[in-house]
Design a protein around this nucleic acid. Structure first.
Lengths: 147, 147
DNA sequence: TGAAATGTAACTATACTTGTTACAGATGGC
DNA sequence: GCCATCTGTAACAAGTATAGTTACATTTCA
């Protein structure tokens, strides 16, 4: 229970909603598919809702559905909705400013961090939720992720 | 104290070793620059040594130095030496195999994970430790990381 | 009004990272 | 040979993030 599986769960949840189409889906149903607790799902849906990716209704007959068709949901939007988007972290403590390296390394690392994070987002932007759904339904992912 | 700053520390340490050149550097000196404990540095150096990026000598007058010139140390090698290289994690629990999504999503996510991780490594492979040292020394990182 | 759903707070268990102390082993200088 | 000095590593503490769980207020429809 350590690394961040939020993105994986989010894709699972959204693929499920894409499959069910334009109807309210209960968090219990999703939780059963993901094999976790319904509250975990509702927490995740909360982030997706904030990002405008899904809509929810409270009350009886309530539930959640996609706010846009799967073709219009890019993976980078999903990633940004549930992750902080940092591939690596900067120093925990600020380095020694009296050292020539320590004085300047943070600025350089920060730029590098931005560049790497940006490349991840760009790569994820090449695919939509519809692509994921297609691959899941056909179970044919071979050759799908162009190298 | 949560996210992984190993890669940042590794770049700092290696930049320091690149600056000092071909001499044995004590973990105490590096620790002072990074602003942490010498044991933390020695632990990190252990991983870099396993990956063949540095050499160490025990005993008095011992220390650590680069095993190759900075131009030949690619950032992707450093990344792979100290990180597991996963931008995101897969499900904590295996999804429900009786659900059409749950049954196939893991394979698709695994492929996606590989593709994203690969793109990070490729991006990091565009730079060497010498590039980092140059940027740190000149403190001119603007425009350095081509978008 | 009541059943059924969401939204959210609170708590626990687990695991990872970092920092720290302690000490065995290696090495070079005297 | 002895000793100061360094590495390598085990062991432990502290802080923090994720995930799982229980509980409950709130909303909504029939």
């Amino acid at each position: 229970m350590a690394a961040n599986s939020q993105f994986s769960m989010a894709l699972h949840v959204l693929a499920y909603l894409a499959m069910t189409g334009d109807e309210n889906v209960k968090s219990d149903c999703i939780a059963e598919s993901v094999n976790t607790n319904a509250v975990v799902i509702r927490r995740l849906l909360g982030q997706l809702r904030e990002a405008g990716l899904v809509r929810s209704q409270t009350g009886a007959a309530g539930g959640t559905r996609l706010s846009r068709p799967p073709q219009e949901l890019q993976l980078c939007d999903i990633y940004k909705a549930v992750c902080d988007g940092k591939v690596f972290a900067l120093h925990a403590r600020t380095p020694n400013p009296e050292c020539p390296i320590g004085r300047n390394i943070e600025a350089v690392l920060s730029e590098l961090q931005s560049a790497i994070d940006r490349s991840v987002v760009e790569r994820l932007g090449e695919y939509s939720l519809a692509d994921i759904l297609t691959m899941v339904e056909h179970n044919s992912f071979k050759d799908a992720w162009s190298v």
